[in-house]
Computed example of a mutant assay.
Amino acid sequence: MKKVEHTLETLPPLTKAQEDNLKRLAAMPDDEIDHDDMPALTDTQLAEMQRGRLYRPVKTQITARVDADVLAWLKSQGKGYQSRMNAILRDAMLGSK
């Protein structure tokens, strides 16, 4: 079997039948959708699941003013100071909920 890979840009358009099927499914209540053809996950698979592992938030470029000593400290940790800054801000954001 030949492996086929697509990006969002190279996906073929949906057929009319596929569009109709998606609309029909979207209109159904979740408890009425037949999942019988979907194999059940094993206990091992469930234990190894990681939520959002492949999720990558959209990045927005900004200009921000930070204290010189804060920037020096971030840069002193090595490459990736902007990613570290983002991680610190994310931790603060999640901790404030």
Score class of each variant (00 low, 15 high):
residue 46 L to H: 02
residue 21 N to A: 15
residue 92 A to I: 07
residue 57 P to E: 11
residue 22 L to V: 09
residue 80 G to P: 11
residue 40 A to G: 02
residue 41 L to N: 01
residue 36 D to F: 00
residue 49 M to V: 01
residue 75 K to R: 15
residue 31 D to R: 08
residue 95 G to W: 08
residue 44 T to Y: 06
residue 87 A to F: 01
residue 61 Q to M: 07
residue 39 P to G: 01
residue 26 A to G: 12
residue 39 P to L: 01
residue 91 D to M: 09
residue 52 G to F: 08
residue 79 K to Y: 06
residue 83 S to Y: 07
residue 63 T to Q: 07
residue 64 A to F: 03
residue 21 N to R: 15
residue 71 L to D: 12
residue 70 V to P: 02
residue 77 Q to T: 05
residue 67 D to F: 04
residue 20 D to Q: 13
residue 59 K to D: 07
residue 90 R to S: 10
residue 77 Q to C: 03
residue 21 N to I: 06
residue 89 L to P: 07
residue 94 L to E: 15
residue 78 G to T: 07
residue 43 D to N: 09
residue 79 K to R: 15
residue 82 Q to A: 13
residue 42 T to F: 02
residue 38 M to Q: 04
residue 36 D to Q: 09
residue 62 I to G: 00
residue 19 E to W: 12
residue 86 N to L: 06
residue 53 R to K: 14
residue 78 G to W: 14
residue 69 D to V: 03
residue 50 Q to C: 05
residue 65 R to S: 08
residue 74 L to F: 05
residue 81 Y to C: 10
residue 25 L to V: 07
residue 27 A to S: 10
residue 37 D to K: 08
residue 46 L to S: 02
residue 57 P to D: 11
residue 92 A to M: 14
residue 52 G to A: 10
residue 49 M to Y: 08
residue 22 L to R: 15
residue 32 E to N: 01
residue 67 D to A: 14
residue 76 S to N: 10
residue 70 V to R: 07
residue 81 Y to M: 11
residue 77 Q to Y: 08
residue 82 Q to R: 13
residue 56 R to V: 10
residue 92 A to K: 13
residue 44 T to R: 09
residue 56 R to K: 15
residue 84 R to C: 01
residue 56 R to F: 00
residue 19 E to N: 14
residue 86 N to V: 05
residue 84 R to G: 09
residue 67 D to K: 11
residue 53 R to F: 04
residue 64 A to M: 12
residue 18 Q to T: 09
residue 61 Q to H: 06
residue 51 R to G: 01
residue 91 D to S: 13
residue 93 M to V: 11
residue 48 E to S: 04
residue 18 Q to G: 12
residue 53 R to L: 13
residue 26 A to H: 10
residue 72 A to N: 09
